[in-house]
Design a protein around this nucleic acid. Sequence first.
DNA 1: TTGTAGGCGTTATCAG
DNA 2: CTGATAACGCCTACAA
Lengths: 353, 353
Amino acid sequence: MKSKITITEIADKCGVSVSTVSRVLNNSPSVSPKKRALIQQIIDEYNYTPSVFARGMVNHKTKNIGVILPDITNPYFASLFLQIESFALKNMYATILFNTMFARNPDKYDTPLSEEDYFKIILEKQVDGVLILGGQIDKDDVPENFIHALNQLHKSVPVVIVGSRIDGCECLFVERNSRQGVTSIVNHFIALGHERIGFVGGEPGIRITSSRIEAFKQTMKAYHHDVNDSYIVTSDYYAPDGYSAMNQLLDQNSGKLPTAIIAINDMVALGAIRAMKDRGLDCPSDIAIASCDQFPHSDYSIPRLTSMDLHNEYLGRMAVMQLISAINGSEEAISINHMPELIIRESCGATRR
Amino acid sequence: MKSKITITEIADKCGVSVSTVSRVLNNSPSVSPKKRALIQQIIDEYNYTPSVFARGMVNHKTKNIGVILPDITNPYFASLFLQIESFALKNMYATILFNTMFARNPDKYDTPLSEEDYFKIILEKQVDGVLILGGQIDKDDVPENFIHALNQLHKSVPVVIVGSRIDGCECLFVERNSRQGVTSIVNHFIALGHERIGFVGGEPGIRITSSRIEAFKQTMKAYHHDVNDSYIVTSDYYAPDGYSAMNQLLDQNSGKLPTAIIAINDMVALGAIRAMKDRGLDCPSDIAIASCDQFPHSDYSIPRLTSMDLHNEYLGRMAVMQLISAINGSEEAISINHMPELIIRESCGATRR
DNA sequence: TTGTAGGCGTTATCAG
DNA sequence: CTGATAACGCCTACAA
């Protein structure tokens, strides 16, 4: 609406050349203090800001980064994003957010876009870098053409992926050991005297799901405990999924129910507990539950949830740092090693007298 | 990293002038089908996309919109944002998201920025329009200088605010009747036979809080029921706030407790129920609870939450529509009138036999 | 320390 | 229908 003032006009008003103004803008040292002060004053007075377009034309930078994630509604991604945005802003980058979930729920959100489509859009936006959280890269078997698209994207702009490294993908990765958490929970349950332990939630064919289930089985084996396959029911990552998974588990094990259940995250745990309740089963006295990934407010549910604090905020921070340093030309990988923490509350039954 | 191909090179390869290429890019009709086809083919082959910078230089558009909200972690804003992004993308706009909550929690997120600072940043980003959800504009008394900043911003780019209209503010508003919901709940409670009704949550001095409490009082008065001031405890919008508010309410009314409580939203309701539980009180048998604003998964808590579905998604959609049409020059206000819906579940006690 | 001038990739205007 | 050419606002040699 209002046409912005330009560097030329500033220069005129100050009686200097545009280059001098440009110099104070990019605080180049070679400007006399006197002129610098004057120019700065005029700049402030007219509230002048250089055009991103003109700037971009010469240095090809937008100071924007693209963030692609499945669903900002999911607390996991939301808290990650919060950190990302905070840190990015501190470094003068703004974040353009893309929710690919539209691709998954075409009925609810009628934007039939694949993640690859997003790559294209994001590329056109001329962002300085891209952060990818979850989605296709989390699949056990990442489609060949998706990896190709990723590499393609990475050729034009640095791409940082939060997730486990993939063979053949040249992007940068920020990864974390996703198994420790499960192990802690199994240890805890076994220490509590449980032997029949189950697992609910998580989309099958997705890495976090697979690796957690595997870690679960391995740890159980280390204790020489059986892992009954019917005690493991996958579904997805939300409350309704925990509900259905738990119901299925209960259905197929009416004989000997597990005494403890590991849920893939807090929402699933909540759904599972609700399913139990609807069948007259109490948590934790009938079946104890603990979740592998803590979300906000797990301290206010009934019962309070025992879960792993994975320090997700920290992960988000690392990811932007990695991206920004890549934008600035550094290729060195940042390794992240943060210990997950078991937060014992009510649902695991450890606190019942 | 990889330098992009330019319109000139495309023109060269096709043996035409840049203008012709530009024409097919902006599908101007006056291009011979033959040339158009050829050019398009080369464009596809080289995967050419025009530079946003060069484009911006001439038409001053980024096809980006800025969205400012307090906290994307809050389900209310998250679901709103989802719709906003979806609809924006459908219209070829990308969304730059800014969480001002950093401004509120300087200890947790050490970015000491005021909302005004965000205005400045967002302006420098040269977005085509700005959407503001919540924050300072929601205060009962919006600071004069904030309104000024808003108007200032609106002078350079269209600003749409989701919230109640403010005197002296020239921005566009998308507003909604926030009282209807409360009225429905009071009606429901009274129909259920309740007379001593309370209210918990919501930050004092914030419009939605004030208007809901006022609507609550008015409706009660219409039924000739007393509204005991000690039955109303404000705090904030999250679970911990519901918890503390409820505790306070319980403390100051040990004599005659209310039999029903209205919570400002689902998270607060959850916190309140948790507080009751910790004191051996059951919801709904001891005190019934209903919430004014439904969040996802309220169907999976214990007890299931009775709450108002405010159709927030719809609100988000309206907001972008308004913004986009403003960007395109239309100033006409879109009025929105969507009936909130009372979803009766367990916490209100209506379903107990 | 300061100024001049060329170029960045498009679009729009104006001739042909 | 097509092609020159002048902006657009800034940065960066290069010159002074």
